[in-house]
Nucleic acid binder design. Structure first.
Lengths: 124, 124
DNA sequence: CACCATCTACGAATATTTTCGTATTTCCCT
DNA sequence: AGGGAAATACGAAAATATTCGTAGATGGTG
């Protein structure tokens, strides 16, 4: 699976959240946060279709796109790369930083702790 | 602080690990893993000096470089960006993926669990 | 002292990613 | 049917990142 670029990821997030959408919809969504032209979004989505990152339905004049890669899997791939380039592979260091620097709610911490306890249980 | 590129990060990792070194040393280290020319490494390090990512001592003919940014801080910055672009800010999701997909030893899991328990303790 | 290995400086080629202008087609509304 | 809004296709500019060739300086060694 080809690694999506940063701009492509923004588009994928819209598709993951919305399911299928038109270029127009994706563009409106991005445009709400960022100043970008319509044809820029269109071009990116066309490139993504070539790369196999998205699928498109061209039956109607207005094409309908959907993500061709799974969100969790893609994030896993990205994480693997990032872990390597930024943390030289130390998952523990990354996790500690993530927990330490970003506000995580009590509930989320609980959930993570249970997750770990569960892993430790399996492991014995 | 300017965000280092991927190639720059590789150099920073050498500097973080080694302390001060020459271009030659950094190059040899990178070259062991990757086919890259000496002047490429040199040029990158010169650019990094301009950007303020590294400091260099030019007293002797052979310049000596050291990282100008702290490893943990830099990783924190990178993580913030990555968390946003890849996980839309969900630290929990990232942590779960990191723990789930990458082999983490029993000892490391313990350490993380204690870290969380400690955070939860403070929080009450 | 002259040569050679090694260093830095610098500009430019290449590759990658992002942006957008323009042309053309299609559909809808009057 | 005619005109305009909205869509896609396409190429190329712009921005960013990476690579390296070449020139010139410097220092050690025979």
């Amino acid at each position: 699976m080809l690694k999506p670029t940063e701009a492509e990821l923004e588009i994928l997030h819209v598709l993951w959240q919305q399911g299928s959408c038109t270029v127009r919809f994706v563009h409106e969504t991005l445009h709400a946060q960022k100043d970008v032209g319509y044809t820029t979004t269109l071009k990116l989505m066309q490139i993504m279709a070539e790369k196999g990152l998205v699928r498109r339905n061209v039956e109607s004049r207005t094409h309908v796109y959907e993500a061709a890669i799974n969100e969790t899997e893609a994030q896993g791939e990205l994480l693997r790369g990032f872990l390597h380039t930024a943390f030289r592979g130390s998952a523990m260091k990354l996790v500690m930083q993530a927990l330490g620097n970003h506000k995580t709610s009590r509930e989320e911490l609980d959930e993570i702790r249970k997750f770990i306890e569960n892993m430790e249980g399996d492991n014995q």
